[in-house]
C-alpha cells in the first residue's frame, strides 16, 4: 500500500476502479447489481440486455443495491504478488479474498477483504461490505468486519431478509460443486 493513498475513511471523491459496480454514500458501500423485473433473478456484476434465467423472457434489468452483509462461503489469500493488470503494493502484503454468500439474493460475491487475514476468517462468519483503495489509488469494494450489530439487507426498505439463518457451513448457495 502506498501510505499517501491510504484512506482512513471512504470518501465519495475517490475514483472507483470500475464504474457502476458499487456506490459509496456517507461511508456506506453498496454493491450494485441488477434485478430482473420479471423473475427477480439478481445479477452481479450488473447486467444489461436480458435475464440470464433461461426460462425467463425478461428484458428489463433494474439496477439494485445488494445486501451489505453475508456469510463467508470460502476464503483465501495471495501470498505472492498477483500479475498485471493487478498493481501490487510495495512492499507487498498478501491480498485476502473472500467469497461471501448473500442470502436474500442467493448469490456468492467475491471480493478483497479489508484489514483481516485468513487467520481471522472462517467459513460461515458474517462480513459486511466496505471499500478500500487498490495500490495505485482507485477504490474497489471489499469485505470487512461487520461494524456493530444491526441492519442487513439491501438499502432502506428493500429487505429484511437477514443473513443469520445461513450461518454455519451448510449455506444455501451450493456446496462447492460436490453434490
Amino acid at each position: 500500500m502506498q501510505p499517501s493513498k491510504r484512506l482512513c475513511h471512504i470518501g465519495s471523491m475517490d475514483t472507483p476502479a470500475i464504474d457502476g459496480w458499487f456506490t459509496v454514500d456517507d461511508d456506506t458501500v453498496h454493491l450494485i447489481g441488477t434485478r430482473c423485473a420479471e423473475c427477480r433473478t439478481v445479477c452481479f456484476p450488473p447486467r444489461t440486455g436480458f435475464c440470464p434465467n433461461p426460462r425467463c423472457p425478461g428484458e428489463e434489468l433494474v439496477p439494485a443495491r445488494l445486501s451489505r452483509r453475508g456469510t463467508v462461503w470460502s476464503y483465501t489469500d495471495a501470498r505472492y504478488p498477483p500479475p498485471a493488470p493487478f498493481v501490487a503494493a510495495e512492499p507487498y502484503t498478501p491480498v485476502t479474498l473472500a467469497a461471501v454468500e448473500l442470502a436474500e439474493e442467493g448469490i456468492v460475491v467475491l471480493g478483497q477483504v479489508k484489514d483481516l487475514t485468513v487467520d481471522d476468517l472462517h467459513v460461515g462468519m458474517e462480513l459486511e461490505l466496505t471499500a478500500g483503495p487498490l495500490a495505485d489509488g482507485p477504490l474497489v469494494w471489499m469485505w470487512g468486519r461487520p461494524r456493530g450489530p444491526g441492519q442487513t439487507g439491501a438499502g432502506a426498505p428493500a429487505s429484511t431478509g437477514g443473513t443469520g439463518g445461513t450461518g454455519g457451513t451448510g449455506g444455501t448457495g451450493g456446496t462447492g460443486g460436490t453434490t
Binding site: C39, P45, G106, V108, L110
Partner: peptide, 15 residues
C-alpha cells in the same frame, strides 16, 4: 459454484 473467472455465482432468487 463460484467459477473461474467470475465475480459471483448465478442467483438462486428465482430458480
Amino acid at each position: 459454484v463460484l467459477e473461474l473467472p467470475c465475480f459471483a455465482t448465478d442467483s438462486t432468487a428465482a430458480a
